[in-house]
Design a protein around this nucleic acid. Structure first.
Lengths: 319, 319
DNA sequence: CTCGCGTCATGCCACCAGCGAATGTCTAGC
DNA sequence: GCTAGACATTCGCTGGTGGCATGACGCGAG
């Protein structure tokens, strides 16, 4: 039973073993062949290369100059194949490899870094890259095989449609609640399931002049008409304005952890803001790498830990 | 007809070609396989390594991370085997390799260097080493596979017996004549087939105190009893003594070219000194390297060019 | 929507490459 | 000369390997 579970490289092993032991018979015994098999293997090799590779002596064999030359290459080749095997195994055991993750901006605030931390702790050998971009871009990059996995968010139907069009697989992670960031000491600080109507008198800070592009705009469908006092795209500036008491703003739950601690917050009633679902997105058709496969459960667990209930952690007032 | 004249490395080529073309079908066409064969080759590879190597896309395939890893090694391995092939071919065409020649001292004076010159001119890539030693030692080194070829000399029967005992093959090259080196202007300068009796009054310079070890001693059997004036092992010193007129000495024909030009010389009648045959010696049983095989004809030709007749070149007096 | 096309996967068959067992041949050593 | 040990060779057979035909699937044109 000549160790058949390795690929057609038997002749290499046979050759090297013959050279090592200096005997067909011994090599055959070592490799679990019969002597005749070894004899013909070598004969075939010699025919193939058109030159004798071993001198047949009365007691065993000795490599000719050609044999020695080939031996060097054969050993190098075996080593090469061995390395391939080892590295491939390491890849499978996630001792090496790469994982290219993409996510939308607010996911990069807390959820993804936290999961990445757990992943890196479990698989230090894997090189992880993270980039944040808009959902549409992430889906495109998945399809282009620039990313292995992405965390995307958006309107359930539209996002799923976009993903399907690009051949991207979506797995829902959580439905994201919305918070309102309030100036310190605000009267509504810590409230849960706040109705937007209660905020009708507030001055709002929007992320863009076009309401449709903003979180706030997505609430327009419910008949709510906010008074927009400022338009600021920058996240830091936005918080600054809120902290200074110039207005309030919507904050996705995932970004709550990134809120400056002096801000008060309150959760919005789910009926007043459309659900924004967060998905794990993976390319369809391509077999997931071991790294991506290992990342997904961690991502699910991380999402699970996020509040699906009425309020998030530290939702009541500043520290 | 899948290019069957190369050794079981087909899977490497198949794999690399699939990765290169990104298609089983195209790879099959390029390698003169059918698509099904390629499909199963890859499937077998994937089973072997326990991981998918290609993502099957609607249009062709693309290597997975494991595939890319294996691809690097596969290409390296193919290159390695290719190098082996090329170097082996170069070895066969004597564009590389080595030739370890040994010879007895006087052969190193002229015959062997001359042949080596011709050889190196024809095969500049071959690394040639030359060592000179005594015949017995040369035979031993041949048997020990330290030399590829040797030029030895000695008494026909004894030498052949020694060679047989060591498993060394002998091929006669020439029967060496003997010269006498004479002081400049000596009365016998240029004589041919000189009888030793004519030299009875001369003072001889021997190489050793034990007559049996010397060329001169080998002539004792014929009843000749020389008057030994000096015993000098060193070749330069011996010539110096002769040149200064202190005596005469025997010189093997092969060393004639190395005689200092101011010495006169004469050939000795073959009946007065025992024949010393010069052989090419090669190890028996071991297949001769291409280099040794190419060297032998040159050696025969070189020996042929040496005088087998009554007198050598420039045998008459100094220049 | 359906059809056609191109792609890979698979079932079935044939072939021969390669193995095992037994035998032959050569050499060395006693 | 005989024995022992090594490689070579022969014969019969199995299993791997490729070819052919077909199936499954996704895409894109009409």
């Amino acid at each position: 039973m000549p160790d058949s579970h390795d690929f057609p490289t038997a002749w290499l092993r046979v050759f090297v073993e013959v050279a090592r032991t200096g005997s067909f018979t011994a090599a055959a015994a070592a490799l679990d062949y019969t002597q005749s098999a070894v004899s013909r293997q070598i004969a075939a090799l010699e025919a193939e290369f058109g030159t004798p590779l071993f001198d047949r002596l009365p007691r065993g064999v000795r490599p000719t100059e050609s044999g020695r030359l080939l031996l060097r290459h054969a050993e190098a080749t075996l080593a090469q194949l061995d390395r391939a095997r080892v590295e491939l195994a390491a890849l499978g055991r996630l001792e090496s490899g790469r994982l290219r993750v993409g996510c939308f901006a607010t996911a990069a605030a807390s959820l993804v870094p936290q999961v990445l931390g757990a992943f890196r702790a479990a698989h230090p050998g894997v090189v992880v890259t993270l980039e944040s971009s808009l959902t549409a871009d992430l889906l495109r990059r998945l399809a282009e095989d620039v990313l292995d996995l992405a965390v995307v968010a958006g309107d359930p139907v539209a996002t799923r449609a976009a993903a399907d069009a690009r051949g991207v697989l979506l797995e829902p992670l959580l439905d994201e609640r919305m918070l309102v960031a309030l100036p310190p000491g605000h009267r509504l600080a810590g409230r849960r399931d706040l109705r937007l109507a209660e905020l009708a008198d507030e001055s709002w800070i929007a992320g863009s002049e076009r309401p449709g592009d903003t979180l706030l705009g997505s609430a327009l469908g419910s008949g709510f008409r906010p008074h927009v006092g400022y338009v600021v795209g920058d996240w830091i500036a936005k918080q600054g304005l809120v902290a200074a008491g110039f207005g309030i703003t919507l904050v996705p739950a995932l970004a709550a952890a990134a809120l400056r601690p002096d801000l008060a917050r309150a959760t919005v009633h789910p009926d007043d803001v459309p659900v924004r679902t967060v998905w794990a997105a993976t390319p369809r058709g391509v077999t997931p790498g071991a790294a991506a496969a290992a990342f997904l459960p961690l991502l699910r667990a991380g999402a699970e830990a996020f509040p699906r209930g009425p309020a998030g952690p530290a939702v009541s007032g500043p520290a």
